[in-house]
């Protein structure tokens, strides 16, 4: 599998590490309580299809990436910098 890092270009997936759902970008505010954090931290849509997820180019530029990838085929649909994802 290969990913195209916006900084570094197309690289083998072995340069990257995977964290999980891009939902982790949407951390609740500290005063929203345990239920919101449970939803944030534990509950996953886990789609069989396009999945928005977070990877880090840890053996490259260290950028965290927002990747949309199909979990049935591993086909990568888009890669962008996680820091630039509008929230």
């Amino acid at each position: 599998m290969r990913l195209t890092c916006p900084h570094c270009g197309e690289r083998d997936a072995r340069e990257f590490t995977y964290l999980g759902s891009a939902k982790l970008l949407d951390r609740p505010a500290g005063d929203t309580g345990a239920e919101a954090f449970h939803e944030y931290l534990h509950i996953r849509e886990n789609p069989a299809g396009p999945n928005a997820e977070l990877w880090q180019h840890v053996m490259g530029c260290s950028a965290w990436l927002h990747v949309v990838r199909d979990t049935r085929t591993h086909v990568v649909e888009s890669v962008s910098l996680a820091s630039g994802v509008a929230r």
């Binding site: 964290l19 970008l25 977070l54 880090q56 950028a63 965290w64 996680a82 820091s83 630039g84």
Partner: peptide, 13 residues
């Protein structure tokens, strides 16, 4: 290190 980068880039950009 990876966690801090995550916090910096993803949570508090």
């Amino acid at each position: 290190m990876s966690h801090l980068e995550f916090c910096a880039q993803c949570l508090w950009p």
